[in-house]
Computed example of a mutant assay.
Amino acid sequence: MQVMKQTIIANNSSVTEFILMGLTVQRELQVPLFVLFLLNYTATVVGNLSLMNLICLNSHLHTPMYFFIFNLSCVDFCYSFVCNPTMLRSFISEENTISYAGCMSQLFLFCFFANSESYLLTAMAYDRYVAICHPLQYTSVMSPMICGLLAFGSYFMGFAGAMTHTGFMIRLSFCNSNIINHYMCDIFPLLWISCSNTYVNELVSSAVVGTIIILSTVIIFVSYAMILSNILHMSSSKGWSKALGTCGSHIITVSLFYGSGLLAYVKPSSAETVGQGKFFSVFYTLVVPTLNPLIYSLRNKDVKLAVKKTMKRITS
């Protein structure tokens, strides 16, 4: 076990670095898991980068829906660089340490991208509502300026939430232990090892997460309730199929992201539940960013057409 480094500040011991326990301490699993998550990391980077390039290079994908998909892929692409390297290092390194500044930076970036993705998914639900329920006004309602404002608002709200979480975390002291039962610096594992009173932090974290969940859930549910009502009034089966096709990918993404997030962020009451939370967090930090490019491309005729056009350009 690595010796905890400390500095003396105003007669109080303060941790200067943390030790990340990683996903598992079982040595026989570490090499197979390293290979598995390295492949996952590669797939995430290649998949999201490819989807962003396809959208940029093909003019028929320059629509509001693909504007938001581009931003979602951009967030997932950046997201992967926050979580994956520390997890991969935990499988092959016996001294998986991270500095205090590095830990707080990782916490900020993790919260920023997670919050931004949540709001982007909400904006995408509104986009689908306008496309299906008000198709004649779609171009004017979802103008480039409105799309830009929705994207900016998503990033701004993500930044505000991340600043709140990180700001309140910095005020805490870590003096009894520097061992984090996680593969990254997350909110509840850090609160669990703090020697300060964490009541205010727990209250603020619940308020921020609750606001994101309630606001996003209400908008998404209302949007899809209106979409469902509109679909039920459609007379043609072709209209049904097209409407469900445009919404299916988004529904799958929302279910995976919010489902795994809720399981990970149900308030831990013990060290055991903190440990369980890291396994659920694997889904929305590592698995969902890998699946999103596949979800939005496998059954998407526009993306398949873009792939064919791009391949023709490369071969010619």
Score class of each variant (00 low, 15 high):
177 S>G: 12
56 C>E: 09
58 N>W: 04
12 N>M: 03
285 T>E: 06
195 C>I: 10
2 Q>C: 10
221 F>K: 01
314 I>W: 11
151 A>E: 00
127 D>M: 07
23 L>K: 04
115 N>Y: 11
257 F>A: 08
16 T>A: 02
157 M>V: 15
310 T>H: 05
291 L>W: 02
296 Y>N: 08
1 M>P: 10
117 E>W: 03
117 E>D: 02
289 P>H: 11
179 I>Y: 01
162 A>H: 04
18 F>G: 10
70 F>I: 04
40 N>I: 13
105 S>C: 12
44 T>H: 08
165 H>T: 08
122 T>W: 00
313 R>E: 02
42 T>V: 12
111 C>Q: 11
149 L>N: 04
16 T>H: 00
44 T>W: 02
234 M>W: 06
87 M>A: 07
91 F>T: 07
212 I>Q: 15
247 C>A: 09
42 T>E: 04
302 D>H: 06
40 N>S: 14
43 A>K: 09
225 A>I: 10
210 G>W: 15
72 L>A: 09
303 V>T: 05
46 V>N: 14
295 I>M: 05
6 Q>P: 00
205 S>H: 10
105 S>V: 06
158 G>H: 12
221 F>M: 09
71 N>W: 01
147 C>Y: 00
198 T>C: 05
24 T>N: 02
84 N>E: 06
144 P>R: 03
199 Y>E: 11
1 M>E: 13
137 Q>H: 06
196 S>M: 07
273 T>K: 00
305 L>R: 04
172 L>H: 01
218 V>T: 08
27 R>L: 14
205 S>T: 15
163 M>Y: 02
125 A>H: 03
56 C>K: 13
130 V>A: 07
162 A>D: 01
4 M>C: 12
251 I>V: 11
43 A>D: 07
29 L>Q: 01
228 L>C: 08
211 T>W: 07
300 N>Y: 02
185 C>Y: 05
65 M>A: 13
180 I>N: 03
62 H>T: 09
311 M>I: 15
209 V>T: 14
101 A>T: 14
200 V>G: 03
188 F>N: 08
81 F>G: 00
274 V>A: 00
181 N>I: 12
8 I>G: 00
87 M>N: 03
17 E>Q: 11
221 F>R: 04
